[in-house]
Design a binder for these strands. Sequence first.
DNA 1: TTTAGTATCACTAGTTTTAGTTATTTCAAA
DNA 2: TTTGAAATAACTAAAACTAGTGATACTAAA
Lengths: 210, 210
Amino acid sequence: MIHIVIYDDNISRRKMLTELISLNTELICIGGFDDCSNVLNEMETLHPDVVLMDIEMPNVNGIVGVRLIKKNFPEIKVIMQTVFDDDEKIFAAIQAGAEGYILKNTGADKLLQSIVEVHSGGAIMTPSVAIKVMKFFNQHNQTEINYNLTQKEKEVLIHLSNGLSYKMVANKMDITYNTVNSHVKKIYQKLHVNSIGEAISMAIKNKIVE
Amino acid sequence: MIHIVIYDDNISRRKMLTELISLNTELICIGGFDDCSNVLNEMETLHPDVVLMDIEMPNVNGIVGVRLIKKNFPEIKVIMQTVFDDDEKIFAAIQAGAEGYILKNTGADKLLQSIVEVHSGGAIMTPSVAIKVMKFFNQHNQTEINYNLTQKEKEVLIHLSNGLSYKMVANKMDITYNTVNSHVKKIYQKLHVNSIGEAISMAIKNKIVE
DNA sequence: TTTAGTATCACTAGTTTTAGTTATTTCAAA
DNA sequence: TTTGAAATAACTAAAACTAGTGATACTAAA
């Protein structure tokens, strides 16, 4: 028996969801609220398995709500519901630790399915949300532009980004100071920079070095 | 009519998938191959809408395959299939640009559903994959360790990471070179480093600067 | 009201980086 | 086999950084 609490400022929608949930004998709705003003108290007393959380709510919204829940009751699963336009809210919710993101127009069967899925340890997303997440993922894990740094050049750059001086790099790589200097000059040319700071900044951002 | 090509080294499975797909009148399977050895040629000639791609294949595997497809035919949607929900492969596939990632034991109806969903611009993941992606997401967006850098110190650091010299930073911030020097000394103390390279490296990795 | 932290600035001296030019060897590709 | 890139190295001079000490002014907290 999965215990569910619903947060949604639209009462008729809440009623509808409650009825929908009661159709499945595995699920039971044990509470519903307008917003997250008292979310911690409510979690404390009701201790549901899964929370259905509207993102847009007056006073204390769903993002804050899920953050509070996850911080204090990490075992409670949270599914966010949104009308969906705003990337930022999706990512905020993900970072707050919600297990699911589904659109409000999601079909009844899928909603129920999602609750069960999340309860059993999975995560669910509607496809349009998934594509945003994956795009964001890619964007922030983009494969580097190839600056054609050689292995030695990369090695020098890594050492420098770890705070070593040319002298120390030379020592570590068993080459002379002069050679390190040569490599660095080549690196700067290839990266189109002219200081160690910018080179390292570029190297890290483009994943040339870890 | 959605045109589909299947990559899977298991012939009987490929046959099964082909038959499954043909059950839906909206879908048609226009090709199937053992591995990705000739994937670019095959894409060139068949130009499917969606590719069903097994990850584990001899010779040229699915990860390489999706990477090749996405690089040369970004409009072709790719759904990865695997028996393992191996973290590394999932992320590799996502980064290669796959639109879907589903386990092989996914039900027939869900598979077909997924194809349609992906074709219409969404992305799909099985719940167990989704939770991994989201965890990874969170992990790599963790809030920084607080080094208690002041606003000015951060500002100096940002300028330095953009390649500015102390002199230029001074000019930009309307303070003297000496003050910049003071800030830097403080930064080094707080970050426990003693070179610009290490400071920037640390700053970027800990999201002190973008 | 004393204290701690921030922001500002100065001077110095030693160290390091940057950038210029030049040159040799090696190795793989055209 | 010629060519070109990579790796190595040297020399130099200017510019920049590092690190030490010390000082003033302001603000907010104890």
